[in-house]
Amino acid sequence: MVNRSEAIISEFLDPDLLSSLPSLEVQARYLVSGFLTGLHRSPYRGSSVEFKEFRDYQPGDSLKIIDWKVYARTDRLHVKLHEEQTNLNAYILLDRSASMNFAGPEAKMTKWRYACSLTAALLLFLHRQNDAFSMSMVSDGLEDFIRPASKTTLFQRFLKQLYREADATECNWDAALDELSNVIQPRSIVVLVSDFYTDLEIFRKHLDHLRFMKCEPLFIQVMDPVECEFNYDDPVLLQDLESGEKLVLSPDLIRERYKGKMEKHINDLTDLVKQNGGDHLLLRTDSSPIKALGSYLAIRSRRFK
């Protein structure tokens, strides 16, 4: 049901409109409210502190949840229901390397801005779901790591961080994930947002560790359409955003081969992630980022089954 709703919503959540929204918070609210409009309220109810409703005792209900005070007053057995308290920790790691600071000739927003909107939406979504969340940027390691919590102040703090520029010269996933492994809680969800232009082998040991910790990784790969299609016509002089190296080439002559390489890289990443019990989501900056929320929700659902 999530996927179907997600598809319907995606049609209404226009990436162009998203790029024109003034702040990340508004963008996040736009995405999340749009997403939630299509969903039912969470069916999971637990024993958290937030009271939800009373109902008559039914045989089979735990004796622990009977409200004895109400019984004393009314001589009837009622059970007290509370809003779900999941105790779920979500870690969002956002690639802040310069390679994210790219927008193709026809793109409305850079990969970085797209990733930030997406992250903001995720944070808001997590906050509303009462999940504990943490967000860190990745450059030569983790930046400003804060333990996950579900607090509005924390959400605001992370939101401010998202206004930073993607100007790091590198994205050292190895170091970042090493650092994370020291602090991560078991059974957490780890969301990695990046273009993943790196050696995939470095993820292998970290994914093993995450699996060991019963954590579920969600790799959200953000790409510009140009990176996928490589639809340049004339010979171009390209400069690497991180290393500054230059390369002259004729797109006509290498397009197919490049696309083959890129496809293989994406497939390799998908395989790697899925082999380790995670999910991989490829998002093009010309599509709605709403899918990310759907993917997160899917993972979260699996947790409670």
Partner: peptide
């Protein structure tokens, strides 16, 4: 004219192009 373009264009996935080209 097309032999050597003068203006460089930023590109993130140069690593793949290196491998290809």
């Amino acid at each position: 004219l097309k032999l050597r373009p003068r203006v460089p264009q930023a590109y993130p996935a140069l690593v793949f192009l290196y491998a290809t080209v």
